[in-house]
Amino acid sequence: MKKELFKFLIFTVLILVAPLAFKGGYLMNVLVFVGINTMLAIALNLLLGYCGQISLGHAGFFGLGAYLSGILTATHGLNPWLVMPLAAGLVGLLAYLIGFPILKLKGHYLAMATLGMGIIIYIVFNESVDYTGGPSGLSGIPALSIGSTSFDSDVKSYYLVWAFTLGVCLFSLNLANSRVGRALRAIHDSEIAARVVGVNARELKVRIFALSAVISALAGCLYAHTMTFISPASFGFNFSVELLTMVVIGGLGSIYGSFLGAALLTLLPEFLRAAHDYDIIIYGGLLMVMVMFMPGGLVRSVPDAVRKLVRLKGGAGNA
């Protein structure tokens, strides 16, 4: 447990000093998105990596958070800090209610149903033009502020978003190493055995689904207020698949893996500008390659490979 806390402190320090390394340049803006995507990847990972339940509709919860926040602040002029818990709570409630019928389904059927749910939400964003502005988007969302400090620059947004992201990280790490986290992993490994020792699998799956939706919606709120403009294109099926790719690349069932996957997939397009049109091929290829050759994700495969290499060298030295 001490080791876990130590790891988290190191991670926090690295995040806090990162802006110094980039001197507030253009990359700061990208790092804000790394933070938001990390939150989203952790949310999906709690459901998929820990509990073993897939969702292909998480972009929908992300979008609902963003639109609720956007509409209530930009159109109705409510205070963003008030709206944030309200939006997250509403999305959580919705997920909780959908959760009961949807999580009765397993495997392929669950994937299809969550995919359908995500697409319905996306269609609503596009079609309810009066509220969302339709395909052309919603603008004029205010930036968050505390007192007279407005989080309107990249560096300020960075610290704001990462404060939330680190909170979500710590929250999820605690959860993973607790009684409830063990029950989640037990459901993943053998649902029937978990039920036999008294884990109410049905209820717990729904709660994690709702928690995952709350975190996604929170990320949506932050996204809306840092971007100040949102449009449906950011919340479609492709983004759900991108989130899935982050989780699978980083490592199913690893919180730091989610960060790694999110960072990689967010930064990669920035460094490979030329590769812009290749992104979906790359995601598709990565998904297949990871599942086939590195099912543990980078967070496990890389240390394994390093260990093997060291042992190989050690062995050669002895021979």
Binding site: R179, R182, A183, R185, A186, H188, D189, S190, I192, A193, A194, V196, V197, G198, V199, G253
Partner: peptide, 18 residues
């Protein structure tokens, strides 16, 4: 039916869920 990705100790800890 074991929780095959968890440690032996963790398996028994899940047994104490109720």
């Amino acid at each position: 039916e074991l929780f095959s990705s968890m440690t032996v100790l963790e398996n028994v800890m899940v047994g104490m869920h109720t």
